[in-house]
Design a protein around this nucleic acid. Structure first.
Lengths: 339, 339
DNA sequence: ATGAAAGCGCTAACAG
DNA sequence: CTGTTAGCGCTTTCAT
């Protein structure tokens, strides 16, 4: 590996000067700069980011951590792409950690990231009272939360108005005449699960309808739980006429169960999902779903993080995006908006 | 941040001893070890991975690089999950880089990873003659290629028999009576594109059929190109009666175009895709597709990488998985195997 | 079995 | 404007 000293020799200067042209070119004579740049180029030199990181703590190690609950969920994939987009422009890299909705795993990754001396962290905490993340925030590490906020500590956060999104979805179902509407939720300790439940209940309340608790099921937000809980729901003495699924993966699981049982959507059971996918239109039937702008959310989160790294004392921001209902045909005949 | 010296003081030993209990516990007295462990625990000490990395080059920095073409493709997501699974067990972290099929991006990321002093790299090179990756292999960095091999240099590789997979898919179509079968490929410089084309041609040859070149289209393996090329194909004077799509994303794009045009699958156009998705059964219609075991491939790749890190001189391995055709109903009525 | 000390490659005072 | 030098936190001889 070629290093500072090699470049220094080649250019006939000291390593300090080389370091300077790397970090503060303006403090170096134009022609010295030239010679050094030459040497750098011809030796194909790249400074060791590890050594840089060890030396200068905080803010210029050009690496951040990314801790997300489930990489199988296309929503998070969009978030990742958004984050990556702006990081790429800044020459940053990300250490990506997928904790698969498992708190133990989240903690391990957080420990690793900490000892990697990252510049900042974008995280969707396992739950609102995530002590590990809270501790990191308090320790001064620049952090922005995505998708899920943190209670009790100040931190930047970008998310969607989950309650309103769920409210719109369920209202849509109610308007279509449905009364027995089931909700398949993710784990209740996840803030988004609760906000979506609140939206569901609000829609009932506003229509002076009463929620039937047996129609609310909790799972772990994965495909399998979507399948299983849909089975349970369909096996009820009086099964629901409509299903509101709490996320992407649950929706796909519900669809699978419904298809396996040969039920017709929306005639025998209607379906709205939280989280849209760009191929929702190709599902059977084209899925009506609440769309979160994952890509934009990711970009915004990364921008917030960079701002906070630059100015750690700036006031925290809370960015709330709208969740929009995409009406297709899984709830009944309506105008089919092409996604 | 608590560091070696803090622990050393707390335990009344030197930093060297603390380092020893961390790395070679057996070379330390049992009771000294006890005291040090105590101190570590009570101070909640974690060694700085950055310092470790800087100091001891190669093989124990516990971080690897992951460079993949497209995180939106569920196949690579499965690969990532597989890799992550075994890395998690070993306490490793990954720097994940998604180059979005863009060679410039791939190069930047490779440079970054190099200067991060990673222990090893798992990569799906942009193309077979990727000089950057080849150079890294030659430089001695432990590397395993996934999904796509490298020509001209020896490197571990794990992939699928793409030719056979494509052959099976197209043969299936031919058996069903199709003759005008289009193939929507990814970029021709990607090895998998070529192997799948070879399978397509082989199926024609074996059935004494002749390939119509106008039915072969090349795109960039993304959703949009799937949509666009399908439009072109359908606009032909004599459009194809069947479509073989070169990957996941192309398939989804093709489906979207077909649905927008209101065509019936498989009556008006049949469809087989390369790459299965776990929700293929919920598509309209349930998709017949060639399945790659992404998760297993990822696990295998990570295992190979660990072995190579441990023993850099071991002979290179080439692991070939089978690609299996999952018959559902997008090519015509057949027994529907539940995925 | 343990400690002292020399770096890993770089940045940031501090001198000149 | 440029060079010298002291570390960043750790591992690893080399002594003891």
């Amino acid at each position: 590996m070629t290093k500072l000293i090699d470049v220094a020799k080649a250019a006939g200067v000291s390593i300090a000067t080389v370091s300077r042209v790397l970090n503060n070119p303006e403090t170096v004579n134009a022609d010295t700069q030239q010679r050094v740049q030459q040497a750098i180029k011809s030796l194909n030199f790249r400074p060791s980011r590890v050594a840089q990181r060890l030396r200068s703590k905080g803010g210029n190690s050009k690496i951040i951590g990314l801790v997300l609950p489930d990489i199988q969920n296309p929503f998070y994939v969009d978030v990742i792409r958004g984050i990556e987009e702006v990081m790429y422009e800044h020459g940053y890299a990300a250490i990506m950690c997928n904790f698969a909705q498992d708190e133990k795993r989240e903690r391990l990754y957080l420990d690793i990231l900490k000892s990697e001396s990252i510049d900042g962290l974008i995280v969707a905490p396992v739950h609102g009272r995530d002590q590990k993340v809270a501790g990191l925030v308090l320790s001064g590490l620049p952090i922005v939360c995505i998708d899920r906020g943190l209670t009790g500590v100040e931190a930047d956060v970008v998310l969607v108005d989950n309650q309103q999104g769920a409210y719109d979805a369920v209202s849509h179902l109610i308007k279509l005449g449905h009364r027995r509407i089931a909700y398949i939720s993710g784990l209740p300790q996840i803030p988004t699960s609760r906000a979506r439940l609140a939206g569901y209940e609000m829609a009932f309340r506003e229509n002076e309808l009463v929620v039937d608790e047996e129609l609310i099921k909790y799972g772990d937000s994965k495909h399998e739980s979507g399948m299983k809980l849909t089975e349970e729901l369909l096996a009820l003495p009086t099964p629901p006429t409509a299903l509101f699924t709490g996320n992407n993966l649950i929706t796909l699981g519900a669809l699978e169960t419904i298809h396996r049982q040969g039920l017709k959507i929306p005639e025998e059971i209607a379906l709205v999902g939280f989280d849209d996918m760009y191929w929702s239109i190709s599902l059977n039937p084209p899925l009506t779903a609440v769309k979160q702008p994952g890509f934009e959310m990711g970009k915004r989160a990364a921008e917030l993080l960079f701002q906070r790294i630059k100015d750690p004392s700036r006031p925290t921001a809370k960015v709330v995006f709208d969740a929009k209902l995409q009406v297709r045909s899984s709830c009944g005949a309506t105008t089919i908006k092409t996604s």
